[in-house]
Amino acid sequence: MAILQKQGLTSEDLQLLNSEMLKKQKSSGVTWLLWFFTGGIGGHRFYLGKTGTAVAMLLTLGGLGIWTFIDLFLLNGMIKTTNENIENDLISEIRLYKDAEQNSAVSV
């Protein structure tokens, strides 16, 4: 899916995308450390932007540990999905910016 999203972007756009991804993407290492040390209170989910389920984990102490254990198997997928969503949002922003530039150039 990401390859189709990147179609039509110039090399400058791709460099900008890469630069912004380096700043905004979520680190696997940080996520795993948060799971290990704060998994029972949802620290890793807060980091990944899953605030609703993180609050639920916080209030239930990770479902008394069950939810925390289940996240052991789901965590890599959550990291990948979060980073894909970040990349898609950045691509959309780049396209909006390019469209706005083209529209302003046409109206002048």
Rank of each mutant, 00 (worst) to 15 (best):
E93C: 04
G39W: 04
N18S: 13
T60I: 05
D71K: 01
Q102N: 12
N18M: 05
L59Q: 04
R45N: 05
D89K: 14
L96N: 14
I70A: 11
Y47Q: 09
L14T: 04
N83G: 11
I66H: 01
D99G: 12
G77L: 03
E12G: 09
G39M: 05
S19I: 03
E12C: 05
T53C: 00
H44F: 11
Q25E: 13
Q7F: 11
S19F: 06
E101L: 14
D99R: 14
L9H: 01
L64N: 06
K23W: 02
S19Y: 06
S104I: 08
F36N: 02
N85I: 00
D89T: 13
V30T: 15
F46N: 10
L34T: 06
F37Q: 07
D71R: 02
L74W: 12
A105F: 06
K6I: 01
L48I: 10
K24V: 03
S27Y: 00
E12A: 14
N88L: 13
L90F: 07
T31C: 10
L64Y: 10
N76R: 10
F36V: 12
Q7H: 06
L14D: 05
G65M: 03
T82C: 15
I94P: 07
G39T: 02
T81D: 15
V55M: 11
F46P: 06
R45F: 04
G62N: 08
N76P: 11
E93Q: 15
E93G: 12
T53G: 00
L16P: 00
M57H: 11
A105T: 02
S92R: 15
I79N: 00
S19K: 13
E20S: 08
G42K: 07
S11G: 00
I91D: 08
A100Y: 04
L34S: 05
G42T: 11
G29K: 02
F36L: 15
L72N: 08
D13E: 15
S28C: 01
E87N: 07
W32C: 01
E12P: 01
L61Q: 06
H44N: 12
E101D: 10
M78Q: 13
W67L: 14
D89P: 00
F37E: 02
S19E: 11
G77A: 09
M57A: 09
M57W: 00
T82A: 15
Y47P: 03
D71F: 01
W32T: 00
E93M: 13
L33Q: 06
N103G: 06
M78I: 04
N103A: 14
T38S: 14
I41V: 15
Q15I: 09
W67H: 03
Q15W: 03
G77S: 13
I94N: 07
L74Q: 12
K23Y: 01
M21T: 02
G63M: 08
L59R: 05
Q7I: 13
A56N: 04
K24G: 00
W67R: 02
S104Y: 03
N85R: 13
K23T: 11
G39Y: 05
T51V: 14
G42S: 12
R95V: 08
I66V: 15
I86M: 03
V30W: 03
T10W: 00
E87R: 08
L48S: 07
L16M: 11
G42I: 05
I91P: 06
K24H: 10
K98L: 11
